[in-house]
């Protein structure tokens, strides 16, 4: 051996001890891509493929039918009622939970989350039992010309139940992290309660609020099980877009069903895009909420 150090002509690539070998990495990435393609991307493509099977004109014509039109109008109306009510509840609940110390807080948080573990069908059943024609209250409501089940109020109530935790769940972690110091400072400086909320709290939580509203809206417009039970599925009157999809589908009007589905898939696209944009741009103001 000479005293010169021999350097191998082709050094082995350095791999940190905290990564997997490249082959395994590639295999794992491949597995994930295949599963996601088969489960997520293929259905999405299928929706648009089936909708356009007989051309654009046919697809658009199926949407301009009066039943389809009234389904779209009803879905927009339900979302327009449910989302603001839910946002108001979410803000109130988050304020009461994060700005005050009181007993039983953990219980209330659990109860707010309760609708997540109740089947949508059971959610619909709850309101049928409460306000259906077979209950005393329901019979009286129907007699006095204000039916809840098989009408708009029932659909709204069931959708509110289903989307109940969305906004509150987004706001509570964010407001907990932000603490109370800024509001206390504003109050010390003489701001009124409402002014404190509007100029101090709201700007701090606006992106988290928007995030919660987006998810709530997506669910409100897409809810199927709860609305199917409570709405009575009266064609042209209490049929929302997801229910219309089922009706078209069961009548073998495939293009009409998938065109309606494509419309809701576009909504999902918009939701995901805005949501992702929020996550990239304002990650710091969502951090607590976005990842549980």
């Amino acid at each position: 051996m000479t005293d010169t150090l021999t350097i191998p002509s082709r050094p082995r690539a350095f791999r940190p001890a905290t990564t997997e070998p490249p082959v395994i990495r590639r295999v794992l990435i491949g597995v994930c891509l295949v599963v996601l393609t088969v489960l997520l991307f293929a259905p999405l493509i299928a929706v648009f493929d089936e909708a356009l099977r007989q051309g654009w004109a046919f697809a658009i014509a199926s949407l301009s039918e009066s039943d389809a039109q009234s389904a779209i109008r009803l879905t927009l109306m339900v979302a327009a009622i449910v989302v603001p009510v839910n946002a108001a509840f979410g803000i109130a609940a988050a304020w009461a939970i994060t700005k005050f110390d009181w007993r039983g807080k953990a219980w209330v948080i659990t109860l707010i989350d309760l609708p997540f573990s109740v089947s949508p069908v059971v959610a619909g059943l709850l309101f049928v039992l409460m306000f259906g024609a077979n209950s005393a209250v329901g019979a009286w409501l129907v007699a006095s010309g204000f039916p809840i089940v098989s009408a708009l109020p029932g659909i709204v109530l069931a959708t509110l139940f289903i989307t109940f935790p969305f906004v509150a769940r987004e706001l509570i972690p964010v407001m907990l992290e932000q603490g109370r110091a800024e509001e206390e400072a504003a109050l010390t400086l003489g701001a009124s309660g409402w002014r404190t909320f509007l100029t101090v709290t709201l700007p701090n939580i606006r992106w988290a609020l928007l995030y919660g509203v987006l998810l709530c809206n997506a669910r409100a417009m897409g809810e199927f099980g709860a609305v199917a039970v409570v709405s009575g599925k009266i064609r042209g009157q209490t049929t929302t877009m997801p229910l219309m999809i089922e009706m078209f589908y069961n009548e073998y009007l495939s293009v009409a069903a998938f065109t309606m589905a494509a419309l809701l898939a576009l909504l999902a696209f918009v939701t995901l895009t805005l949501k992702t944009a929020l996550e990239w741009r304002y990650a710091d103001q969502l951090a607590a909420s976005h990842r549980h």
Partner: peptide
């Protein structure tokens, strides 16, 4: 989370 379940179902 964003795609309505009925859409996922028929797709």
């Amino acid at each position: 989370f964003a795609l309505p379940t009925a859409v996922a179902g028929i797709a």
